Amino acid sequence: MNTANGTSSGSQNEPAVSPEEVRAALEVVVNSETLARADRARSLLAYLVKAEQNGEAARLKGFTIAQDVFGKDDDFDPAMDAVVRVQAGRLREHLTSFYAGEGKDEPVRITVPKGTYVPCYVRRPSAAGAASAPAARPNGSGGRPEAPRIVDFGASASAFKLDRTIEDAPLAATRSLSDKPPAGAQDALLSPFIVRNVKRFWLALAIIVLLLTVILFLVWR
């Protein structure tokens, strides 16, 4: 359950997840191998966590996310364009895969529950996570936890906005490919063998025409 400062705890007996732990958990996820090629998922997750941690969870609606993250215009209609829902679904799949694999020992897990775009933060049970979560265990100085790594969210939400050219790149590539003939056909048209044979054909045709002209001239003479 999220608290007033945008953090959550796994149970009443465990301390709330601090903003520093949230930032450290986010850094681990966005730099993971699981999301290495998922640019949209990483941008969306960073945006959602930043907004929630800044107390702007109420703004996490499909329309706002579409504009801030995916560069949609003011005429964007969430009912007609499912880009936010689709990308949120893929993000949930990536998070599930990450925490089932390389992130299985992470002390704090980030989730985006279905039906909402507001992220939640779940602490692993203390007994299971004590040995594998150095950021959460005491460092010997008064029992205070070690400072986790902190990721810089940037000056504003625009830092996580996808460039329109990046967003449209797959479609642009598809269009450019569809406008070009198949590679095999293009190579065949430019084949030196065919070019030579075409030249020979026209040369032979010119010789035949010339011979016919000479024959007709001799016949009628």
Rank of each mutant, 00 (worst) to 15 (best):
A51T: 01
T213F: 08
Y121R: 10
L210T: 08
I110G: 07
D168C: 03
T34N: 03
E106Y: 02
P181V: 02
P119S: 05
E146W: 14
D163F: 01
R196P: 00
M80L: 10
A57S: 14
A135W: 12
P192E: 04
E146R: 13
L48D: 01
D105C: 09
N2I: 07
V108Y: 00
F98T: 06
S176F: 00
V22P: 06
V195L: 13
A147T: 15
A79L: 11
P119M: 10
E20T: 02
N2G: 11
N197P: 01
A155C: 10
L91Y: 05
E106C: 09
H94A: 14
D152N: 03
T174H: 08
G115N: 10
G115H: 09
A159Y: 14
V214T: 12
S32A: 04
I65G: 03
G140L: 04
S132F: 06
A41H: 02
T34W: 00
R109C: 01
G6K: 12
D105Q: 15
F63T: 11
A16T: 13
W202C: 08
S9G: 11
D68I: 05
S141W: 15
Q53W: 05
Y121H: 06
A46C: 15
D73L: 10
F217Q: 15
V112A: 02
L45H: 01
E56S: 08
G184R: 14
A79E: 00
D75L: 11
S158D: 11
R109E: 03
L189Q: 05
G103H: 00
F193Y: 12
K199A: 04
V219I: 15
F153M: 12
M80E: 06
S141P: 13
K104Y: 01
P182Q: 05
A183N: 12
